[in-house]
Amino acid sequence: MSVTPGEECGLYVSTTASSFRVSAFRIGWYGGTEARLVWSSERIPGRVQTEPRFLTDTRTVRAGWRRTLSFGTAGWPEGAYVLRLDTEDGHQRYVPLIVRSAQGTGRTVLMHAPATWQAYNQWGGYSLYAGPSAAYAGRSLAVSFDRPYDSDGAEKFMVYERAVVVLAERLGIPLAYTTEVDVHRDPKVLHGAAAVICLGHDEYWTPQQRQHVARARDAGTNVAFLGANTCFRRIRVEHDGTRTLRTVVCYKSSFPSTPPTPPW
């Protein structure tokens, strides 16, 4: 969901196109232009990847693809990015990426919401809301970041978050960038921040994230919510066999046969 400046990033792509190119755009304000190209790849051979895996216990879709390419982010400023994938015949797909800030002292922290993006993501037929039949009872109980986003790939970011990033940068506000999963993992970016802004629709929170935001508020950081339904769903985030948090778990009105690991 995010990288630090200079960290390597990987893309996992499945396409019927013979080749494609990746372009990275930083969202912001550039004298009337709302994005700036910071990097582009050479032409990359395309291939169709394997069918995604389906975990029956939680109805979780996980792509499990091989990495298509890796690239560094050296020289990329902190911020909100959209990676655009272009095929030779004009088709496009988008991937949102946050280049996160290590610290936010004295700055306004924009807290992006990929856990909420993933909750609504129907790629592979399942989200936290419905399965292939569109019935609530057939929904996923856990959703994985190891799959593309549906629609054009960046719909939730573009609808709920992009315009705030553009406006904040146009106003010249000192900004720091993070995600709610990063705040869950390490609240350091909130320490001494002037404000933390929840952008648009930010529905799915862990208890740890809520604690960290509340402690920042109590320490003098302003908190603003720019959308409804903020912090409505209580989730946990889990590791997928690595040290990276890759799964959003939210049983809602269902209950697992095995009690979950606290906190729930």
Score class of each variant (00 low, 15 high):
Leu190Ile: 11
Arg62Pro: 04
Val38Gln: 00
Thr178Gly: 10
Ala228Gly: 13
Asp218Met: 04
Tyr136Arg: 09
Phe255Ser: 13
Val164Gln: 15
Ser127Val: 10
Arg59Thr: 01
His112Asp: 14
Thr179Cys: 01
Ala63Pro: 01
Gly90Met: 00
Val213Trp: 06
Glu88Leu: 07
Tyr81Arg: 04
Leu97Pro: 03
Met111Ala: 11
Ser144Lys: 08
Glu88Met: 09
Gly64Met: 04
Ala135Trp: 03
Arg217Cys: 06
Thr108Asp: 07
Arg43Pro: 01
Val13Asn: 15
Gln118Asn: 12
Tyr12Lys: 10
Val189Ala: 03
Glu51Ala: 15
Cys231Thr: 08
Thr16Met: 06
Gly138Asp: 15
Pro5Gly: 11
Thr4Ile: 04
Ser70Ile: 11
Ala63Phe: 03
Asp89His: 08
Arg21Leu: 08
Ser40Gln: 14
Val22Met: 13
Thr230Ser: 14
Arg246Phe: 10
Ile235Cys: 14
Asp218Tyr: 07
Ser101Met: 04
Ala130Ile: 03
Val196Gln: 04
Pro114Asp: 01
Asp182Leu: 02
Thr179Asn: 05
His212Gln: 08
Ala154Asp: 06
Gly220Glu: 13
Thr247Ser: 11
Pro52Gln: 12
Asp182Asn: 09
Ala74Cys: 11
Arg36Ser: 09
Pro263Ser: 08
Trp117Gln: 03
Thr230Gln: 07
Pro52Asn: 04
Val3Arg: 00
Pro52His: 12
Val109Thr: 12
Ser254Val: 03
Gly104Asp: 03
Pro114Lys: 04
Asp89Phe: 02
Gly32Cys: 10
Phe54Ile: 04
Asn222Phe: 09
Arg217Pro: 04
Ala113Cys: 14
Thr179Arg: 02
Leu37Arg: 05
Gly46Pro: 10
Ala134Phe: 09
Gln208Ala: 13
Gln209Met: 15
Val143Gly: 12
Glu88Lys: 07
Gly200Gln: 02
Pro77Thr: 01
Ser14Lys: 07
Gly104Gln: 12
Arg170Asn: 06
Pro174Tyr: 03
Gly6Leu: 10
Tyr251Asp: 11
Leu110Tyr: 02
Arg53Cys: 14
Ile27Glu: 04
Tyr149Val: 01
Val143Glu: 05
Thr244Asn: 02
Val3Tyr: 00
Gln118Lys: 06
Gly124Ser: 08
Gly64Trp: 05
Cys9Leu: 06
Arg93Trp: 07
Leu69Asp: 05
Phe54Thr: 11
Phe255Pro: 12
Pro77Tyr: 14
Trp205Ile: 02
Ser101Glu: 12
Asp89Ser: 09
Thr4Leu: 15
Leu175Thr: 06
Cys231Asn: 02
Val164Trp: 09
Trp123Arg: 14
Leu37Ala: 05
Leu69Trp: 14
Glu203Asp: 02
Gly10Ala: 15
Gly131Ser: 05
Arg67Gln: 15
Ser40Ala: 02
Gly192Met: 11
Asn121Tyr: 06
Pro52Arg: 11
Tyr12Trp: 07
Ile235Trp: 03
Gly6Lys: 15
Arg43Cys: 11
Thr60Ile: 09
Ile197Gln: 05
Ile44Arg: 09
Pro114Ser: 03
Ala228Val: 13
Arg162Val: 02
Thr244Asp: 01
Tyr12Asn: 08
Ala35Ser: 14
Ser253Gly: 01
Val22Lys: 08
Arg217Glu: 10
Gly106Cys: 00
Gly200Met: 08
Asp202Thr: 15
Trp39Cys: 00
Ala134Met: 13
Gly10Pro: 09
Val99Gln: 00
Ser127Lys: 09
